[in-house]
Structure formats: structure tokens, C-alpha cells
């Protein structure tokens, strides 16, 4: 955010009457890629603002969307679409994955706490029977209304 000394009257002009005086006026600005390391999750660019590891994305890493300032936190989930004949339970067992949800051909595997999620995603995506993958996250800011 930029702080500027701007004559307030000049800013609001005819919008509404205010006392002509010089006050500190701030301007909110979105996050830019200069604000931190840029990373790509599910094909979209984010700025990494807080992470347990400097090098890799792990569960709990906090990211911000460069374009909209939307904040997300990685949950450690990997959402996987499996080929229709694949049994998720058997698939998980055979590949030593922690299956936490399955319905039809959609399975969700939970990564261990400090596992690098991009590496984990790449490993799972290479397995036979995997159609596509997405790294799971929580969009921050959900509130009771």
C-alpha cells in the first residue's frame, strides 16, 4: 500500500464537502509478483506469502492470487479423477496413498505434513489409471453471514 500526503479536498473534489486540509491518505494496492515468490498451482499463478518450507509447497502454505488478492491455504489434499474401472481403495493400498474420500471415480488423497505437494502431485499423476489431478486448497475468508 502506498501512503501519500494528498490534499483531501483535491481527492474528493465535488463528491462531498470536506474540510480543506492536508491529511495522510492511503491507497490500497493489490499484491504483485514483486511481493514474494511466484508459484503455480493448478495452472494459476499465486504469490507465496507464508510457507513452512522456503523451497517447496507443503500443507499449510499460504498463497495469494496475483490478479485478485484472493488468499488460499493448501490443505494437503490431492483430488484425483481415476479411470472408471479403478477401485480407489485398491489403488491407494497398492501405491501407499492415504485415501480420505472416494465417490465414484473421484478420490482424494492426503499428503503427509511436510511432503512437497508439486512432487506428490507429479508422482500420482504418473500412476496408471489417473485421469487428472488438482491440488486441494481452502479459500480464505469464509465467514458466517
Amino acid at each position: 500500500m502506498k501512503s501519500k500526503l494528498i490534499p483531501l479536498l483535491a481527492i474528493v473534489g465535488s463528491l462531498y464537502a470536506v474540510q480543506a486540509s492536508a491529511q495522510t491518505v492511503h491507497e490500497a494496492t493489490p499484491v504483485t509478483s514483486d511481493s514474494g515468490v511466484t508459484v503455480n498451482v493448478n495452472g494459476k499463478d499465486y504469490v507465496l506469502v507464508a510457507a513452512k518450507s522456503d523451497k517447496e509447497l507443503v500443507t499449510g502454505a499460504a498463497l495469494v492470487d496475483i490478479k485478485t488478492d484472493e488468499a488460499i491455504v493448501l490443505t494437503g489434499e490431492l483430488v484425483v479423477e481415476l479411470e472408471s474401472l479403478i477401485d480407489a481403495q485398491e489403488f491407494a493400498q497398492a501405491n501407499q496413498l492415504n485415501l480420505i474420500y472416494v465417490r465414484g471415480n473421484r478420490a482424494i488423497f492426503q499428503a503427509d505434513a511436510n511432503v512437497a505437494l508439486h512432487t506428490f502431485e507429479a508422482q500420482v499423476a504418473r500412476l496408471n489409471g489417473v485421469v487428472n489431478t488438482q491440488i486441494g486448497f481452502n479459500l480464505e475468508g469464509l465467514e458466517a453471514e
Binding site: D69, N132, G136
Partner: peptide, 21 residues
């Protein structure tokens, strides 16, 4: 429940596959 938005969001399955889910 819901969110308060300070910028418009895109509704794009390609870059936000969770929306499709």
C-alpha cells in the same frame, strides 16, 4: 456463509478446477 470480495473473481474451470468439482 459466504465471502466478501474486494475484487472480481474469474469463473474458469481451467484455472480453478475446484469450481467444476
Amino acid at each position: 456463509y459466504g465471502r466478501t470480495l474486494s475484487a472480481p473473481r474469474s469463473y474458469d474451470y481451467e484455472e480453478s478446477p475446484w469450481l467444476q468439482t
